[in-house]
Each structure stands twice: as C-alpha cells, then as structure tokens.
C-alpha cells in the first residue's frame, strides 16, 4: 500500500514549489510595477490607489498563507514527532474569529474609505461638466456633442441611415441642428469634467478606456453614465469590453485628449450634422 513513501522528499518538493510560486508572483508584480497601464484620469488615480491597497493587503495574506502552508508541510511530514492534541477552545476561537475580523476589517475599510469616494466621483454629474453622448453599435462608437446651444436634439428612429444619419437625429428638431456627430473619434478636453450619456442601438457593448480606468456597459433601451476628468494631453483608445458578436475584438475608437484651448478650437471647427 502506498504510504509513508518518500515523505520528506515529497514535502520538500511541494514546499519548494509553493515558495517558488509565491516568490515568482511577488517578484513579477514588483518587477513589472503591478502591470498597470499608465493612468490619464483623475478618478483613475483613485482606482489605482484602491488596487494598490488590495495588492498590499491581499499580497500579505497570500505570502503569509503560503509560508505557513509550506512550513507545515515540511515540519509535519514525518511519521513520529509531536503527537496531535486538540487545540484548546480558546485557541480555536482565536484562530476562527481572528481571521474573520482581520479579513472583514481589511476589505471593508478598503472599500469604504478608499473605494467609495472614487465610486461616487465616477457616478456623480457635476454642474459644469461637459456632456457627451456615446452611441454604440456593432462595431462602432459614435460621439455626439450638444453644439453651441448646449442641448441635444431629439431622435427619430425612422430617420436612421447607416451612412448619413447613424444616430437617427430628427432633421426637424431645431435644437439638434448644431449637434456635432463624431464617428470613431472622441475628443476630450484635459482637466475638465466630462459626463457621458451612453447608449446602444443593438446589443450590449462596454465603453472601456483602460488608461482612464473607465468601464461602463452600453445597454440598449436605457442611458448609462460615467464621469471622467482627463488629466493629461495625449491619445487613448476605446476598446469594447462586452462581447457583442464576432467583431467584438475590432470595436475600437480613437480618443484624443487636447488642452482646453485646442479642444475649444477643435469644437469650433466642427459643423453640426444638419448645418
């Protein structure tokens, strides 16, 4: 019967593997600076803080857990040694409720103290925010700016036209005359709050801009929202994050973040769809 065979060799091998696995994971995270892409939005810095907090808290548990596991595997691999006696009731309580209090405190304090304000920032529109409407369809992103009047015009689904009127804007609505429609390109001002109204024509999509740490599903039938304050001038990409059929992987759009002056200039150069 297989028993007590090569006990100590197996113990050393398994413990070594667990320690190498732990060290390699921690090492890769340090060497690659946690793999996080650059961050270009105000709330994104908060998201990264949240992530770093969990990396340290969870990393600590990960390392300690594996050290203890490896230690036990090596120490208690023999057939003789100290014989088992049940723990005292007090010790049992300590080892049961100690971890509970630790885990709940670590995770709930993190989510309430660091996470909640960032969450609030992402989902609260500020009075002077620039409002941009994002419309998704297979496999394209279209941005709409309200134009000089600051108002979005109405839509009429019957006027939809794949090439001429992809947002189905109502030609007869005056407020929509100056609305600026930008297909496949989203231009944003740095340092200014932008509130997005996100919608979809067909299936679910997700408005995902990794460098902003922004992700919000586009759901047909309702508007969803998210808020971004871009921090630096530069370029980024929208890359759909919700499976939307076979072309999902190529559903992208360019994002240009301009200085407020350049942004104003760009905006003034655009003409409304029906102007």
């Amino acid at each position: 019967m297989p028993r007590r065979n090569s006990g100590s060799a197996s113990a050393l091998l398994l413990a070594s593997f667990l320690l190498i696995f732990t060290a390699a994971t921690v090492g890769a995270m340090i060497y690659k600076k946690c793999y996080l892409p650059p961050v270009m939005s105000h709330h994104g810095i908060g998201v990264d803080k949240m992530i770093m907090y969990i990396i340290f808290a969870a990393g600590f548990i990960f390392v300690v857990g594996h050290l203890v596991l490896s230690k036990f595997i090596v120490t208690y691999s023999g057939t003789g040694g100290e014989s088992y006696k049940p723990m005292s009731h007090r010790a049992e309580l300590f080892f049961t409720f100690g971890p509970v209090i630790l885990m709940v405190a670590v995770s709930e304090i993190g989510v309430l103290v660091i996470g909640a304000p960032v969450w609030h920032e992402v989902y609260t529109q500020q009075p002077d925010d620039l409002v941009i409407e994002i419309t998704a369809k297979q496999y394209e992103w279209t941005a709409r700016y309200p134009g000089k009047d600051g108002k979005f015009g109405l839509r009429d689904i019957k006027q939809y036209d794949e090439t001429e009127n992809v947002l189905a804007l109502d030609k007869h609505d005056k407020t929509g005359k100056d609305d600026i429609v930008s297909r496949g390109l989203l231009v944003l001002p740095a340092g200014k709050g932008v509130w997005f109204n996100i919608r979809s024509w067909d299936v679910l999509h997700s408005f995902n801009i990794p460098v902003f740490r922004t992700k919000q599903d586009a759901v047909p039938g309702i508007f969803t929202h998210t808020r971004v304050v871009p921090t630096t001038v530069g370029t980024a990409e929208i890359a759909c994050a919700q499976i939307c059929s076979a072309g999902h992987y190529r559903m992208k759009a360019k994002v240009l973040i301009k200085s407020p002056e350049d942004f104003a200039k760009w905006l003034s150069e655009q003409t409304g769809q029906f102007e």
């Binding site: 998201v47 969870a58 993190g110 992402v122």
Partner: peptide, 14 residues
Amino acid sequence: LFLATSTADLHFHD
C-alpha cells in the same frame, strides 16, 4: 477581493 471591490472592478471587469 479585487473583483468584489466595485471601484477596482472598473479596471478589472471583463
């Protein structure tokens, strides 16, 4: 822990 934290999930989701 990362995925259960809604704020971090903004980055990790999908």
